[in-house]
Design a protein around this nucleic acid. Structure first.
Lengths: 331, 331
DNA sequence: CTGAAAGCGCTTACAG
DNA sequence: CTGAAAGCGCTTACAG
């Protein structure tokens, strides 16, 4: 059976296509009579009318797609949760969220958005300036650098605050000589550098010596070396803040094999609150994030960029409420 | 600056729009002269012509979107990897992959595909028959139940084989009384039931007693109870196959606190090869999966459904090559 | 071997 | 307050 078009609705309701379009798009300024409005709405619903995305996109020169360019981040639970939440809240607003995982090798971006004509492009990292330029040329709005330190207001999620929170917790528990487990993976730098910077600034603010940074990988050997470095120096460290839970768990495993007691000999705090972190022995203290809240914040920003009405949810979580300290047994 | 259209290419190449369309879509049957072809191709490239998705979709009544309906699975690393790989290989074939995470509460599906007019719908679980019906009505091809046991040929990824492989490995190492750690989460059933079934069938085939199944959650208390049940019965179990690595890690943690030696008192095998699994002490034996290979298989199926030419890659991994046993220290 | 023309479904400037 | 008409960019049946 053929599709129901706005022409069908018009004929059935005894009005013109113009009127149907005005009613369905809520264009008040043309002052349609209440009765006409009602009849059109009722007819559209009765016939099961669904507007054609293609027709609208062709006419307006702009689709209802929000194109999210995601750099080559490692797959991480937290990022997946965020993407999921963003997709949901945008779809409630009538937009389709498409993630482009861009590792540089793929199709030139310029080609893609000429083809798709997205309503907005959202870049999780920083878009190369050539791409930003080409978007400007195509008059497609861009939300750039969503997860970069300068744009924490977009999500309310500050990587620096994460590092700061870790240090503040350790300091509050009496630690003064603190180690930092950094990750030796260039793809994580957008997160790891600001977290470390936050930790360093916090130490400074609290009058503590700068954290003793050791760069490590996800391996036992690497964790063993790191622990040795922290504990065998002139002024041994009594606590370690790790870039994320996975690194913290590696350190934890290493402590066991080296018979270092956690938290008494060495306290430990991660970031992410992975499911597995609460299962560790001892259970890992960590930082949790309200990723749904962060995604809602971003959605609000996206919608205001396309000039859409603010989202239904009146209560955007404030930046400070996005992060939570989850205190378990390793501190 | 305004967009370059096929009309522009036609004018510039001194031919009609018809000819441009034929050349660019490679319609041989109309017998265009080689010289015309060359000139059109050259002009299109020179002007930077990119076809409009909206224009094409409107005309053909079908977009180039592949809509993947993903049921309410918990976020799992393996599934994310698979989705990433599928998105990549489809985009190479000129299709845009959109994931719809459907938890039942969202927009009616029928509305969505009237709006988007996808080229194919791919359902990771089983689509409700009303939805399948509505797709048929709209003449949109459907690949249904991608991860259900009846359709393992679509990806080459058999959940049953996973359970079977676990048991075969444990049996080969001399175990006869085997426990199975099942997950008590209804959302995982599409994976957990077939895995358990594969394990049970394998025991049967090998002449072993059926596995002693304990249903558990991701918590220490739950793991402790499970271990008690396995070890304190009349015929204690000497090995445990777990639904996934996370559950296996919970069991492993519990064994430590109960001073049960792994693998000597109790051997343990998981599924997924999580990054954290190689860090555990002792390191976890598990089943790894070639998810890129599985995604390539699915892409081939999708492309043949839309009548597209087979993908460039001539070598689809065979079903048997998707799974690998990763032998570490817990068995 | 190639082109003029119609039409996919929508929105909006314009006319009444 | 409402409608007729044009046009977004594409593909294809038809005519030459």
């Amino acid at each position: 059976m053929p599709r129901v078009t706005s022409k069908d609705v018009a004929r059935e309701a005894g009005v013109s296509q113009t009127t149907v379009s005005f009613v369905l798009n809520g264009r008040e300024e043309h002052g349609l009579s209440a009765e006409t409005r009602r009849r059109v709405l009722e007819t559209a619903k009765r016939l099961g009318y669904v507007p054609s995305g293609a027709g609208r996109a062709l006419r307006k020169g702009r689709s209802n797609v929000v194109l999210c360019v995601v750099p080559d981040f490692p797959v991480a639970e937290a990022m997946e949760q965020f993407k999921l939440a963003l997709g949901r809240s945008l779809s409630e607003a009538g937009y389709t969220c498409v993630y482009l995982h861009h590792d540089g090798t793929a199709t030139p971006l310029a080609e893609l958005w000429q083809h798709v004509q997205p309503a907005v492009v959202v870049s999780f990292g920083s878009l190369p300036s050539a791409d930003a330029q080409s978007l400007r040329g195509a008059e497609i709005p861009l939300l750039d650098g969503v997860f970069t330190p300068d744009n924490t207001r977009l999500t309310g999620l500050s990587q620096q605050d994460i590092g700061r929170l870790q240090i503040e917790h350790l300091a509050a528990r009496g630690h003064r000589h603190i180690g930092y487990a950094a990750l030796d993976d260039p793809r994580e730098r957008p997160f790891s550098l600001p977290r470390l910077r936050g930790a360093t600034l916090a130490c400074d603010d609290l009058g503590l010596p700068a954290p003793q940074v050791v760069s490590m990988r996800y391996s036992r050997a690497s964790a063993r070396d790191a622990v040795a470095e922290w504990t065998q120096g002139a002024t041994p460290v009594t606590a370690v803040a790790a870039f994320n839970d996975l690194l913290a768990l590696a350190v934890l495993a290493s402590c066991r094999t080296q018979h270092i007691d956690v938290p008494d000999d060495l306290a430990l705090i991660g970031v992410d609150d992975l499911p597995v972190s609460s299962l560790a022995v001892p259970a890992l203290t960590t930082i949790g994030m309200d990723l749904t809240g962060a995604a809602d914040n971003l959605t609000a920003g996206i919608l205001s960029t396309v000039g859409a009405p603010a989202p239904a949810a009146p209560c955007r979580p404030a930046a400070g409420d996005i992060l939570t300290l989850i205190h378990r047994e390793t501190t």
